[in-house]
Structure formats: C-alpha cells, structure tokens
Nucleic acid binder design. Structure first.
Lengths: 171, 171
DNA sequence: TTTAAATTGTTTCCGAGTAAAGAATTTCGT
DNA sequence: ACGAAATTCTTTACTCGGAAACAATTTAAA
C-alpha cells in the first residue's frame, strides 16, 4: 500500500521521529522581517478586501486601474498603458477585450500608425469610474486595515520608493 | 474585414477621435496613493528580484519560506503550515511533493492521527537552508531596492500591521 | 525602391494557483 | 458500539497570467 499508488517516493510511513513541534502556533522568526514575504501576504489581504467589495459588481482587480489611467490619459497607447501598470501585453489584450465587450472602453487604430491601439473610455466607462471612484480609492473604504491616515501615507511612500513607481524621486 | 474575424465587436476602425494624449509619460494620479496598486507593483518587483537571484538554483518563491518554517518548527502539521503562510491546501500539496522529490523534506504520518502529515527537513534540506539563508534574508542581498535599513524596518512594520501577520499587536 | 529589421499587438500554449469534489481517518452523538 | 459529522489531505477540473511564436505595420538599410 505504500509503493504503488500514484507516485510517492517512499517515505510517509508512520513514524516515531523527532518529537513534533508542539502545535498551536507556528513561529516565523526572520520571515516576519522579510519584505518579500510580507509583500506577498499583504497582497493576498488586499485581494481579499478588493473582492469583498467589488466582486458583486463583477469588477476584477486590474480593471479599475486600467479604466482610471485611460480616463486620465485619453488616447493612451495600449502598450504604454501595459508597461505603466506592470501588466504583460498578452494579459492586457485580454483585459482590453473584456472591457470593450462591456462597452466601457473604445479601441481606436490611428491612421498615422496602424500597428498601435489607442484607448478611450466610453460614456458608460466614464460613468462607471465616476460611480466607483470613491469606493476604490478609499474615501469611502473597503480598506479594513487598521492603519491611520498618516500610516497609510507613510506606507504608500515607502512602497513607491521600494517599487520605483512614479520615478521623480518621490517626495 | 472588420466583422467576421475572430470576435471583435465593431469598433477599432481607424478613427479621427479626440486627439490622443501626448505620449511619452502616463500619469497615474490618485493611483500613486492606492495601497492595492502599490502592493501589486511592489510584489512584481520583489518577484523579479527573487528570480534574478534564485532562478539559477531552481528555487521557487514559496519554497524557501516553507523550508524555513519547517526548520524552525520541525514536525509542523502541513495544514497549519499552509494556513500560516497563506498558501492554499491544494497548492501546498504540490509544493510539498516537489520538495520531497528533491529530498529536502520528509513527510511523516503520525500514529496518533493518521489523516495528518508532519513535516521535517532532511539533512540536505537543512544544509540548503543554511547555505542560502543569508542570501534570502538579505544580509547578503538581492534586494536592490534603494531603501535604508531604517526604512526597511519601517516598511516591514507597516506591512505587518496592514496584513495582520504575527498578530500580537506587532511592536 | 526594395528588402531587412524593429515595433506593436494578438494568438497559442503552458504552468501556477484554486475551488470543489473525493478519500481516509477521527470525533461526536445517541 | 455504531453511524453521522468533522477534520485533514489529495485529486480533478478550471481560470488567470505569462512566454514564445506569430501577424501586421512601420522604419531603417542597402
């Protein structure tokens, strides 16, 4: 019953081994100072909070950001948008298609460079952004972290520096 | 040539539309203060840095963390490990299998509860953690963010609070 | 001009992560 | 003690995101 099952390189026989660590609480030690680890855990939380707030209206994580940037930069080229938001071209193609089907954005092939795609919000898209802007940015908030306003600003500042977003040396 | 291609709801005809935003730089506006957005971008950077440093030895993002926690909590139950690290059970099963095939961890089915799996590092696993510990935690670093030590600690502190990791009210 | 190279976006295919169902074992209720 | 419910892990089937190959167009070179 041990060898021939699906694929299981020996082991997992019942064992009297080094006494198991008392259960109940697992200690992370240095991991609690690892930025990579903390960033991952934090992003998982952020996603949970996002879905809790926006799943009901069928909004996906990247979509609002994309619409927001298009609103603020009408006619932006698709590739440049992708690069700015750290979204890969293949993925951006899918997102744009979905948003276009929902009639929230418009794709325009300009005559002066027919390889590229320029993006605009439709009226519906603009209305959508207007309607959910406060919810997304947290004036109204789905942000159930217990951080104060000052801490939020501080955290945002450090993340901008960590990631190099915005560039101009930040604050 | 417009309608019957693959699937393309009208649009994308060449257009003279609202003059496109001057290219060159895209402005993010409020997005630069969005923690959700900044966390995502930061984690993308963290992954890039991780792969740049550890891809050559075939180490995947979650694996070192898992080995580290097992080293510090020998005999930890697989499910508890998963919960602690925010990894879903199904995914944990795959990771554990891979690490077992690499002979870095040992799965032990305890006699007192034969549903569960307790995890230990092999000698090779312990050696591996010893060998890469400094590289991973950044005494030696692949961490090319420009943050000072104090800023790193501050960022870690805020991320712990944001994510609720560690629990005991942090500092 | 005419061909080669670069740019831009799309398609195809594959891996990582997950929800849901399943299998094995233990615990609880009666 | 017996069967139902809960626990723990695994399997299956699916979706999301990405690398690589591709197609269309523009720019550079010959």
């Amino acid at each position: 019953m041990n060898e021939g099952d699906t694929f299981r390189p020996d082991q997992d026989r019942p064992g009297v081994e080094a006494a198991p660590d008392t259960d109940g609480a697992v200690s992370l030690h240095e991991l609690e100072n690892s930025l990579g680890f903390l960033l991952r855990i934090s992003q998982v939380r952020a996603y949970e909070r996002f879905y809790a707030a926006f799943d009901e209206i069928g909004l996906r994580p990247g979509e609002f950001s994309v619409m927001w940037v298009i609103l603020r930069n009408p006619g932006v080229r698709q590739g440049l948008l992708a690069e700015t938001l750290g979204i890969k071209p293949a993925q951006m193609t899918k997102m744009i298609r979905r948003l276009e089907v929902q009639d929230r954005i418009r794709r325009v092939i300009p005559d002066d460079d027919r390889r590229s795609v320029r993006l605009y919000l439709t009226e519906g898209g603009e209305a959508f952004v207007r309607d959910h802007r406060d919810a997304f940015f947290g004036h109204d908030d789905y942000h159930n972290h217990g951080l104060s306003d000052a801490e939020c600003r501080q955290l945002a500042h450090l993340l901008r520096r960590y990631s190099g977003v915005g560039r101009k040396a930040d604050d």
